[in-house]
């Protein structure tokens, strides 16, 4: 019961953030010099009357708040407008790209958190030993590496030099399987995933790792850990207990991490030519295709906000103390 109340409160909080986000975007994209009539029609000067008619048609003569309500309503119902560049509804362009993005991003986030938690627990548990001392400093290094540079290095080494992996993209145009395993349905995509996922995991694993390690060190000094030892729990059971409790800060962080992951995602997609919304966004911004840019931006922001909500809910589930 308490959990549902908590969940409802968090959901309401998220709804407010989402509305504020829409206001923010509305203002941001109004920063574009001129209004949509001049942007859409490019450099060609339109007769004043025609421009006026378009304004009325698009509702640009109405008060700002009315325009905002229409704008927000459209975005929320998936009416993302027409692409200037592709001359097609934005939703048709964005939707498949969003799926592609998830195909790349999900393994990056999941593997980063799992590896980070496992290694962080291991380091924290060995606190004070030489290996932990060195490990903690080594863990700083991948966090400092620019993900796009790692991507370039991996490409140069494993795609161009050694030719183990494709040089980018998501699928090969004409891929002819030679052996049985190459015929597996996702083999081609998986092959293309290896390098971008490796680059992504390498750079985003460090934060959950460090947080897990710090939390674990704190947890180790808690009374309940001494008590667990007194109860004769095996070392493995003790470590599992510490990991379980220390995981909570990592969970909080993972919401923020997903936000960062979208940033890293944009860079990864550009380096590896991955046909996702990150690359689409960069291209549309360069091409001044604002409806597409706006839609991709909105989707990423909405995803971050929604994932924040999910993480909050998971936290409430895992830590019963929070619900009150």
């Amino acid at each position: 019961m308490a959990f549902w109340l908590y969940a409802a409160r968090r959901a309401a909080h998220t709804a407010v953030t989402l509305v504020l986000l829409l206001v923010f975007m509305y203002v941001l994209f109004r920063l574009v010099p001129g209004d949509p009539t001049t942007i859409m029609l490019g450099t060609g000067e339109l007769p004043f009357e025609a421009q006026q008619r378009l304004r009325e048609l698009w509702g640009l003569d109405r008060p700002q708040w009315q325009q905002f309500v229409t704008y927000a309503g459209n975005l929320l119902t998936g009416d993302l407008g027409m692409s200037f560049y592709f001359r097609r509804p934005v939703i048709e362009i964005v939707w498949p790209m969003l799926l592609n993005t998830l195909v790349l991003m999900t393994p990056v986030v999941v593997i980063s958190i799992v590896l980070g938690v496992v290694i962080g627990t291991w380091l924290g548990w060995r606190r004070g030993e030489r290996i932990e001392e060195i490990g903690a400093i080594l863990a700083l290094i991948p966090r400092a590496l620019p993900v796009f540079w790692i991507g370039i290095v991996l490409l140069a080494l494993f795609a161009y030099e050694l030719r183990w992996f494709p040089i980018g993209g998501m699928r090969q145009a004409f891929f002819f399987p030679e052996t049985w395993y190459q015929e597996l349905p996702f083999f081609d995509v998986a092959r293309h995933l290896v390098l971008p996922v490796a680059a992504g995991v390498l750079t985003s694993m460090a934060d959950p790792l460090m947080i897990q390690r710090t939390a674990l060190i704190e947890v180790k000094h808690e009374d309940f850990m001494t008590h667990a030892r007194a109860r004769g729990l095996t070392e493995r059971a003790q470590r599992r207990l510490a990991r379980r409790t220390a995981f909570l800060p990592v969970l909080t962080y993972s919401a923020i991490m997903v936000g960062f992951a979208f940033g890293g995602q944009v860079l990864l997609e550009v380096v590896f030519n991955w046909p996702g919304i990150g690359r689409l966004m960069v291209n549309s911004v360069s091409q001044r295709d604002y409806p597409v840019a706006q839609a991709t931006f909105f989707l990423m922001a909405a995803a971050v906000v929604t994932l924040n909500l999910l993480v909050d809910l998971a936290y409430g589930w895992l830590d019963p103390r929070i619900r009150q």
Binding site: T17, G259, V266, L267, V304
Partner: peptide, 16 residues
């Protein structure tokens, strides 16, 4: 925290 950082920076820099 809800605004994805790099995409935002790209949009803003492109607009300005």
């Amino acid at each position: 925290f809800g605004v994805p950082f790099i995409p935002f920076a790209v949009v803003l820099v492109a607009l300005l």
